[in-house]
């Protein structure tokens, strides 16, 4: 049973050590209407201290990918049907549930979108924070409470010692999200997956929370996967970007380069849909149409029904991820035209 030996991933020749390597991940949901293909061959890498932004609309498979990496898919109906998830040199999909559980929360942690519903309403925040130490470290109740106070201080919650026994609903939205972050940081994991961590917050609070997250990431040199649909947030904090559409990666690139010259019409559409102050009063170029149903992903390129540059080839041939530059890839047959146009 212990022959789950996986080759340690050789460190890449340049740069920091690879932390997470997702290869050709497939996830399906069996529903009454049919099989929904939520993730179709996603590959991504995160290095230590690196921030990877995963960008996409609702239903693009970004959250499902995150849940598959964490191992918290709703199973059934969800199921990983293929691929590998290498984390710190181990294939997570080959681990037994008990080993997998010891990784969750301790080596990789997750921050959820809406802290009000993601925190348990009937348990005090001190209890919920302390639970990490009690379960993973076997700490005593008293010790766990002490560590909970320290954590709350670390995420800059005022009067932490007097508030440790309060319940989630007694905190403001921003403070609640800080508690979520504190919970994820509790055991100093190597990787944090933040699923739209600031979507539910006011704009001013968003900035504070993002700043805190970025600070803590630098301090602990963690890998960070930031799932978002907010291009503004991405530009500030991310190193690399992966754009997802209909369960596939359609473009991946270093942030600066992607903003300068997108190599996929979908990415270009997303960038054009950001309102700009210097173009006030003009029609906003939104991406027309709706993302496809995951039960019936169109043949060929999944994006072709909405694509402004689609040609007959796109209806028939699914584009592979073309290497379009150093550390850049695009799943568009006509990426060269796009890059040349810029």
């Amino acid at each position: 049973m212990t022959q789950t030996q996986t080759q340690p991933v050789p460190p890449s020749p340049s740069g920091p050590e690879r932390l997470l390597e997702v290869r050709d991940l497939h996830v399906e949901f069996r529903t009454r209407e049919g099989v929904a293909k939520a993730v179709n061959g996603v590959s991504l890498d995160v290095a230590e201290g690196e921030t990877l932004a995963v960008l996409g609309e609702s239903g693009s498979g970004k959250s499902v990918t995150a849940q598959a990496v964490m191992g918290i898919l709703d199973t059934p109906p969800g199921r990983v049907t293929g691929g590998r998830i290498l984390f710190e040199g181990r294939d997570l999909l080959a681990l037994r549930e008990e080993e997998r559980r010891s990784v969750r929360g301790a080596r990789m942690a997750m921050i959820f979108q809406d802290a009000l519903s993601a925190l348990n309403p009937v348990l005090s925040v001190g209890y919920q924070l302390g639970e990490m130490f009690r379960v993973h470290r076997g700490s005593s109740r008293k010790e766990a409470r002490e560590r909970a106070v320290e954590l709350m201080e670390r995420v800059r919650i005022p009067a932490a010692r007097t508030r440790v026994d309060d319940y989630p609903h007694q905190f403001s939205g921003g403070m609640r999200q800080r508690i979520m972050i504190a919970m994820a940081l509790a055991l100093e994991p190597r990787l944090i997956i933040a699923d739209e961590p600031t979507t539910a917050l006011d704009v001013t609070v968003q900035a504070q929370v993002m700043e805190l997250l970025a600070d803590l990431q630098r301090e602990f040199r963690m890998g960070l996967i930031l799932i978002t649909h907010d291009l503004g947030v991405v530009a500030d904090v991310a190193d690399e970007i992966v754009v997802m559409y209909a369960g596939r990666v359609v473009e991946s690139a270093p942030v600066r380069e992607l903003y300068r010259a997108p190599a996929h019409p979908y990415t270009k559409g997303l960038l054009d849909s950001i309102p700009r102050l210097d173009q006030k009063g003009q029609q906003l170029d939104a991406v027309k149409g709706l993302p496809p149903s995951l039960l019936r992903i169109p043949p060929g390129c999944g994006f072709h029904p909405r694509c402004p540059v689609a040609r007959p080839l796109c209806h028939a041939d699914e584009p592979p991820l073309y290497e379009v530059g150093r550390g850049r890839a695009s799943a568009c047959h006509f990426w060269e035209e796009l890059l040349d146009a810029e």
Binding site: R101, N120, M183
Partner: peptide, 27 residues
């Protein structure tokens, strides 16, 4: 059982029994 806080409890790496009794049943 489909509530967000149950998913959080799983993501914390708590054992199934603890998730069920302390988090799910309590609510």
């Amino acid at each position: 059982s489909r509530a967000d806080y149950v998913r959080t409890a799983l993501a914390k790496g708590l054992p199934r029994s603890r998730v069920t009794v302390r988090h799910l049943l309590r609510n």
